[in-house]
Computed example of a mutant assay.
Amino acid sequence: MKFKHRLAYYLFGALLGGFFVIYFLGAKADSKGVEFCYLPNCRVLKELRSKSLEYSPEAKATLEQNWVNLDDIKKTMQYGDVDFSKSNTAYKSGKVYVIAGKNSDNEAITVTMINYSNKVILDKIEKR
C-alpha cells in the first residue's frame, strides 16, 4: 500500500477516534459539571474559585465605589489571566496571585488575591 493511502487511513482513524473521545468526554463533563484544567492559568483560577472568598477592607472600599462589582470579580476569576511573573509569591502563610480581567464597562482591571489553604482573600482591585 502506498504511503499516501496509509496516511489517509491513519488520519481518518485519528479523526474518527477524536470525535468519539470528544463526544463521550464532553457528555461526561457536561452532565457532572467536570471541567478539564491542565494548563497553569486554568488550574490556579479553578483552585481560587473552589474556596470561600473573603474581602479585605481595601477591597470592600473599592467595591463600594461602583466602578467594579462582585460579578466582575467572579468573571475575572473564571476567565481572567494570571500574571505569573507577579504571582505565586509567599505572603504570610498564603500565596499572592495577580489576575488581569475586565469589568462590566470593558475597562481593564487587576485583582490581587491571597490564597490560603482554606480560604481566598480579595486583597485589592485596581484599574490598569
Rank of each mutant, 00 (worst) to 15 (best):
L63Y: 04
I73P: 01
I125N: 07
L63W: 05
V98G: 02
P40I: 08
N41E: 01
K92N: 05
I73V: 05
K124F: 09
E58Q: 07
F3S: 15
S93A: 10
C37D: 12
K32M: 04
K51T: 02
P57R: 14
L7R: 09
P57M: 04
C42K: 13
A61V: 02
Y55D: 08
R6L: 10
S50C: 13
L15D: 03
K86S: 04
Y10A: 11
G13W: 03
T110K: 14
C42T: 11
N69V: 07
D83H: 12
L45E: 00
Y79D: 13
L48W: 00
V34Q: 11
S104E: 11
E35K: 06
I99A: 03
E126T: 14
E47G: 08
I125W: 00
G18L: 05
V44H: 02
G101V: 01
R49T: 09
E54D: 11
K86R: 15
L70E: 04
K86A: 07
T110I: 08
F24Q: 04
P40G: 05
E126D: 15
L25D: 00
I99K: 02
D30G: 09
L45P: 00
D81Q: 13
Y10K: 08
E47M: 12
A14M: 01
M113K: 13
A61F: 06
E35M: 07
K95S: 07
P57T: 04
Y97G: 14
G80K: 00
L15P: 04
A108N: 09
I99T: 01
C37G: 08
K4E: 10
S52T: 04
K92Q: 14
V120K: 02
Y116G: 05
F19W: 07
G94W: 01
L11G: 09
F24E: 01
N41C: 03
K46A: 08
A29T: 00
A27L: 00
I22D: 00
G17A: 13
S104H: 13
Y79P: 09
F36I: 14
T76L: 00
S52N: 15
G94E: 11
D71G: 14
E47S: 10
A108I: 05
E64A: 13
P40E: 12
S117M: 05
G101L: 03
W67L: 02
E58T: 15
E54L: 11
V68S: 15
K60I: 10
N103Q: 04
F19N: 09
A14N: 04
L53N: 04
A90Y: 08
C37N: 10
Y9R: 09
Q65L: 15
A14P: 02
G80M: 01
Y23S: 05
L48D: 00
E126I: 15
E54G: 03
A14C: 06
A108F: 07
F3Q: 14
S87P: 02
I109M: 11
S52V: 10
E54T: 03
L63D: 05
A100S: 07
Q65A: 09
F3H: 11
V98C: 07
I109P: 01
R128E: 10
F3C: 11
E126K: 07
N41L: 12
P57K: 13
Y79R: 05
H5R: 10
N41R: 08
E107V: 11
